[in-house]
Design a binder for these strands. Structure first.
Lengths: 340, 340
DNA sequence: AACGTTCCCGATAACGTTTGCATAAAAATA
DNA sequence: TATTTTTATGCAAACGTTATCGGGAACGTT
């Protein structure tokens, strides 16, 4: 990778590095002949400025870090797609980190990020994360941060989320209107903002229709499939087993579906299902899955735009007014929740 | 992000930067007292070496670039997951690029990468890519490169692929053994290595059973759904329409399934389907989809290991002997290809 | 002829770090 | 005490780039 540097050009052309630098950036104070000479030489030898040297000089890397729980999750890979699209257009690189839902791993990633390798951070919190002080500190030290999807009240910065309350509310209401009265809610880690908001939406819908809320119907799950088996068993062994289930992620929806099918429970007759999910195959599942679809791509795009704006306005003295952007979800009704 | 530097420590402690640097790296030639002083100060003020400065000095970035056609594709996001896992363990960062199957976009990404922002490159070629000279040049200039999945003969470096021939052969043979005789093959861009190998496997299976190969049964598709509609229409309007279809990607399999269902064609009775796909939902589709599963995670892990080895052995004078690693696929038989 | 401009260009410092070399002070040896 | 060795530290250069400053040469103006 014997790349040529400004020094090489200067030496070859008997000029100073300053002159070469200026010539390459088209400075007006360079003789047109010299400029031409330099530029031609640079093109001939395929000169490319060393981005690392520039980073050091300008104290910025033109890259942003993204921490997601799992890349291999349709929702997050769609978000990343949106992030990459915007970043690419604005000349930034995207560095990916996975927390694997682990607080420790997230913490280590944050440490790396803290040492200036990136100009800003996009993060969706890990399921285990209960303490955001490290992230907060990073933010207070001046790192531009935008939180998306799984956010925290404790950090005052831009946030981009789905309307989780509304999504869960609408989904639950849909189940109720379809005649369901005993609706379970299988959800993610209780620490997560998305969990809390969705539980609220779920409860609000039950309240609206004066259906009593039974805490044993709300199950917090990690993402393993054994766990799902357990949860379903618990639910089914209740004196009043559920006739409807609301799940809140791709994995939970799929796991729930698989478990119920394995147990020969008919969907939607015995139990209706609605999932929060971004699976493209949702319409072709057996049964076709009613889903709350989140605008994942837009979430990525919006988050990236906000972050890049923060980064580029960093020098400006006016402090940004941080906002939380709520994107709308959409309920797509399919077979899994409609009897007959 | 007011991060402290070695200079700051030096100034505060009335030492030279050299001494501080050496103290921090635990050099034997520093007075234990001084060392202790420096280290304590550094810890107190949370000193972190500036990775960009180190990159400049050592001429390496401890990050690798990954170019994939689409992040938001289960196969690739699983590969990336594997890449990230290994890279993380070995202290490297992963910078993501998407080609969106576009040659131009891939080319622009390669240009960025050429300017030393990363220490090595993992790439799976875009569907449009017919000319790999730019990549070749980059490799010849010394950039460590490992190709995965969609590779090219023209570049002599490590490659990690699935056994595409075997996968397609086995899948086709399976369809034949299930009584199918008129088997169509809907595949990706004809430029891609995976396409060529799979077509070969498909043809070899037909040959083995002395079934004539009909070129009109082999359809090269881009990834849009309108295109799929067209292709299916063409296939169905043949005098002898197909009774089996082999598709070779998540999208094609899903698109094919959707289109056939929309046309009220019964699967597997009228047409059997086998897909190359890594969809986790494959078993729960209607009908459950018979699939050739590729070891995506392992592909990512293996590729990353090979690349990092190349990077770290770069200084060694013995040139590496490049190899192509073939990973085994697995045919999982489900309803979509078994009548009765 | 003396001065002020304009035009080009170079030297230097700086970004944060490491490292080879030099060296003062201290310790050990003669 | 004189000399050598050891110990501990600092200086300066280097990685590649750009910005600030300064200045020589050529030109124009009185």
């Amino acid at each position: 990778m014997e790349l040529i540097t400004i020094k090489d050009i200067a030496k070859a052309l008997n000029l100073s590095t300053s002159t070469v630098s200026r010539a390459l950036r088209g400075s007006y104070e360079i003789n047109p002949d010299t400029k031409k000479l330099v530029i031609e030489y640079a093109e001939k030898y395929n000169y490319r400025p060393n981005p690392i040297a520039l980073s050091l000089k300008e104290n910025k890397s033109r890259s942003i870090g993204v921490i997601v729980p799992e890349i291999d999750n349709p929702f997050f890979s769609q978000v990343i797609n949106g992030i990459e699209a915007i970043s690419y257009n604005r000349g930034y690189h995207v560095v990916i980190f996975q927390s694997h839902e682990s607080f420790e791993r997230e913490s280590i990633n944050l440490k790396h990020i803290a040492s200036r390798r990136v100009d800003g951070l996009l993060i969706s919190l890990a399921g285990e994360t209960n303490d955001v002080s490290q992230l907060k500190e990073l933010h207070e030290k001046g790192m531009p941060i935008v939180l998306f999807d799984r956010v925290s009240d404790e950090i005052n910065t831009h946030k981009v989320i789905s309307d989780n309350f509304e999504g869960a509310f609408t989904a639950t209401e849909h189940l109720i209107r379809e005649g369901r009265r005993r609706i379970a809610h299988i959800t993610a880690s209780p620490y997560l903002s998305i969990t809390k908001e969705r539980v609220k939406g779920y409860i609000a819908a039950l309240n609206k229709y004066e259906i009593p809320v039974d805490e044993t119907m709300i199950k917090y799950s990690n993402y393993s499939s054994e766990n799902m088996e357990l949860i379903i068993d618990e639910l089914l062994s209740e004196t009043q087993p559920p006739d409807g289930i609301l799940t809140v992620s791709d994995r939970l929806a799929l796991g729930c579906l698989a478990t119920l099918k394995a147990k020969k429970i008919t969907i939607p007759e015995q139990i209706s299902i609605v999932g929060f999910t971004n699976l493209k195959a949702a319409s072709m599942l057996e049964p076709a899955l009613t889903t709350v679809v989140q605008p994942s791509l837009q979430m990525g795009q919006r988050s990236a735009e906000l972050l890049l704006d923060l980064i580029e306005r960093k020098s400006s003295s006016i402090p940004p007014t941080y906002q939380t952007f709520k994107l709308y979800t959409e309920l797509i009704i399919r077979e899994s929740s409609v009897v007959g």
